[in-house]
Design a protein around this nucleic acid. Structure first.
Lengths: 368, 368
DNA sequence: CTGAAAGCGCTAACAA
DNA sequence: TTGTTAGCGCTTTCAG
């Protein structure tokens, strides 16, 4: 059983065992650069230069080498290339959960942009858990990705991300790049969604329609995204001369089900509410379904607004009033930041937002 | 400008340039296995064995080495490890577009399962283009991922995937694993969604409600997914004693906008249709919005059904009647197949489906 | 059980 | 412009 073991899932090795035979080994391996060089009758270095597009090779040779490479189906080994010091070609992306439309749209932006840079993207789930996030960062570090993009929300408490911050710092000190989307306690280039401004805008929209008793469906208070959006909502209240405490805020999971739960709570505790403002569209959808099941008219009896403008928000009935954040673009920007050489001080790029007023909100009904 | 170039985004190299100094270089590098070995006072080989869990090391030494490694924050370099013959612990996933809920749910299943296996997932977009798909396969091969999962639809014409098939075959012959989701002309382990059966089920549902003039909103005819779903729909027609040609089929992009376009076409050409059956939920959503804008009642005047049961299908108003395919599970299964040692003959795993009858379909109205 | 040494496939000085 | 050569960091025979 020795000398004959089959290794599953691993590549062939030792292709030149013993005296060089007549090539009668039937198990073929992946062509290497050396094979290309040999077939093309040039040196390894020339082959390398021809294929990796460095200058200092005659165009004729380069063309010939490329032709040979294509003919024998040569595909460069990224690991060897990376190890030898060449540019690597992968970036890591950490999202809460790729099935969540907010993150899948961000991911789409990252991947599309990465494709233009000829980079591949490794995606990990953080599950909105600092521990998991840290584990994923470590894994990405092990893979020596060129860059790491953290797209989940940050945490209000700096301590929650302290270890992640340390891991990313050491990653950067070894030449890796880091970019984050959202407000994190991580000293890195950042794309900052206009959470506060957008929150102010939706809330102002509701206030302008006469709503004064507004219930807020919020995700976990520990998330900066939630905190910032809520702060924006409160800004609008204050501007309207109301006490920020006038809001009925309920924190629940930042998901559809969380939204449903929060809607139930709020509706039971405060039957007088005329509007429900969810801090993301998923929660708004949950609220909508609760209202439907309770037979409460939208927007005739209760207005509903969301946040993000995910792809299907406009297709709900009534169409969901929400604030659009350019998720795909945020992803693309994050990748761009991550591909730029590091700056002396961290760069930030702020997004815009757009209020999408649709059918789910309307003027508060006159108290009959 | 020579001899002083700054390499951006690359790791430090040549840490031992010139005579060994007093360690006064201020730019620190990532600890290597050699550092661990030195600090632990053992050989490189022993350090390697201790950390990669091979047997043949005393437990005491192993523990010591692990302790040292943890202390100095050692993280193994995946590239070096791969090059030296280890596995990469990454799998590649090719989807049409991660922003599409169908694929993001599949991806979510793949990633969650991969996480359990301690694997990371590289995601690429194929854009439903055979050329792009091939390019992505090549890129994944270059990364020597342990496995490649192709999740986009296959193509009816075998020739369209001939090159991809060749690339994957060579990938497999060099030890890589391949799994596909959907019907492809690729000899690989496959997860087969119940497209045909599900198509039959939705169509039967419509027929049972008295619909006889049904418009079908189909994606590109070149996709096996479209062909299979359509075949299922025709099965149901035949079973009901109708000619398959009774269907008004319109092919368009397999997206929301394609669905809207197809709905316009069908409604204009065949004002007598009583039901619209979309071959995925995205197209159904497009149809719904067209009907709404035309003021056509759903389901009172026209019933609408979709396919897949993406997360928000139930939250549309009316709720979308559709057939559920277990997308996340399909992803998980594909990963499982890809992690199993290759079998003599390709394995296939068929999914179930579930008809989700909701508010968007109803009995055909009595001809007034 | 442990260590020394030979590569894995590629890039980047350094020579020619 | 082209070729030669020394590693990148790790795993793994093969000796001890």
């Amino acid at each position: 059983m020795s000398g004959d073991k089959v290794q599953i899932g691993r590549r062939d090795r030792n292709r030149k065992g013993g005296p060089v035979g007549e090539g009668s080994t039937n198990r073929r391996s992946v062509p290497r650069l050396a094979d290309v060089a040999e077939q093309a009758g040039v040196s390894l270095a020339s082959a390398s230069r021809s294929l990796s597009g460095s200058d200092g090779v005659s165009e004729s040779m380069a063309a010939h080498v490329r032709e040979v490479a294509a003919r024998i189906g040569y595909i460069a080994n990224v690991h060897a290339r990376t190890l030898a010091g060449g540019a690597t070609s992968t970036v890591g992306l950490i999202v809460h959960e790729i099935g969540d439309p907010y993150f899948s749209e961000i991911a789409s932006g990252v991947i599309a942009e990465a494709d233009r840079h000829r980079l591949t993207v490794q995606i990990c789930h953080s599950g909105r858990d600092p521990g998991t996030e840290l584990r994923q960062i470590r894994s990405l570090v092990a893979h020596r990705t060129d860059a790491i993009i953290v797209a989940g929300s940050g945490y209000v408490e700096r301590a929650q991300q302290a270890e992640a911050a340390a891991a990313l710092r050491s990653f950067e000190s070894s030449g890796g790049r880091v970019a984050v989307i959202g407000r994190h306690h991580l000293a890195a280039d950042a794309v900052l969604p206009a959470n506060r401004e957008a929150g102010r805008a939706v809330a102002a929209h509701l206030l302008a329609q006469g709503h004064r008793r507004i219930g807020v469906l919020a995700g976990a208070a520990a998330l900066t995204t939630v905190a910032d959006r809520l702060a924006g909502v409160e800004d609008a209240l204050v501007e309207a001369g109301m006490a920020p405490g006038a809001l009925a805020v309920h924190h629940a999971a930042f998901t559809r089900d969380g939204g449903a739960a929060a809607a139930h709570e709020l509706l039971d505790a405060r039957p007088d509410l005329t509007a429900l403002l969810a801090l993301n569209d998923a929660m708004a959808v949950g609220a909508l379904s609760v209202l439907r099941s309770r037979g409460i008219g939208v927007p005739t009896e209760v207005s509903v607004a969301g946040f993000d403008d995910v792809s299907f928000a406009a297709d709900l009935a009534p169409g969901l009033t929400t604030v659009r954040l350019p998720m795909a673009q945020m992803g693309a920007w994050a990748l761009d930041l991550a591909m730029k050489p590091p700056a002396a001080r961290r760069r930030t790029r702020r997004t815009g937002f757009e209020l999408m007023a649709r059918g789910s909100t309307g003027p508060v009904r006159a108290p009959s």
